[in-house]
Amino acid sequence: MKFSELDHNGWAELQLYLDTCLLPVTGLTGLESPPEATDKAAKTGEWLSPLESAFRGRTVTLPAYHYYDAEDEEERRKLERYCERVKRTGFRYLAIVSGESGWRAADYPSADLIVAPGNDGEAPDPEAIRAAVASLWKKESK
């Protein structure tokens, strides 16, 4: 579900079942032309789409975190603090989803999973992406 599909009453009723949030991170730096910004947002959407369709009843897609430069240490800390706060709202799991490569899980200890290409130009593998999220839930049941 997208965050905008939930109201106060719906959230109270569904929160128990919606334990995983998806945080799309576009990775815009502000230096992109409009077509370049569109391409970055579309790439993130390609990595997000398999999760939204497969896990609609268990995930909530948060508003996109558009402006983020992974080369900037302060921005990495800011994103980690944001992830930490989101988890405090009641989500058991948080997955960062991006169309940009170069993510290091160690920089985001509050994120349970990072779904992103391993290198530039890599296309998403929908089955592998879905399996990565499902493995989070399997760990819980063991």
Rank of each mutant, 00 (worst) to 15 (best):
P24W: 02
P109Y: 02
C21H: 02
L62Q: 05
L48Y: 00
L6H: 09
S98T: 08
C21N: 05
R92D: 02
T59H: 01
L14V: 04
L48H: 02
Y68H: 11
R130G: 12
A105T: 14
D72F: 02
A64N: 10
L16K: 14
E100T: 12
E13Q: 13
V97C: 11
G121R: 05
L31S: 15
R85H: 12
E13L: 15
I114W: 04
C21E: 06
V25H: 07
Q15W: 04
E84N: 11
L22P: 00
T59G: 00
V25C: 03
G10T: 06
V97Q: 10
L79F: 01
G99Q: 05
T38I: 13
H8R: 11
T44D: 07
A37L: 11
A134S: 06
K138P: 01
L14G: 04
Y17D: 14
K142W: 12
S141H: 09
I129Q: 05
G27S: 12
F3V: 06
T26S: 13
L16W: 15
E127W: 07
G57I: 04
Y17R: 13
H8C: 09
S4P: 00
P50S: 11
V60A: 00
V97G: 08
S110R: 12
Q15I: 01
G99N: 08
A54C: 07
H8A: 13
W47Y: 15
M1D: 06
A37S: 14
N9Y: 15
E5H: 12
A54F: 03
W11C: 01
A41C: 14
S49V: 14
G57K: 10
A106I: 13
L48Q: 03
W137Q: 03
K87I: 07
S135P: 08
E75Y: 06
T38D: 15
Y93L: 07
Q15M: 10
L94M: 09
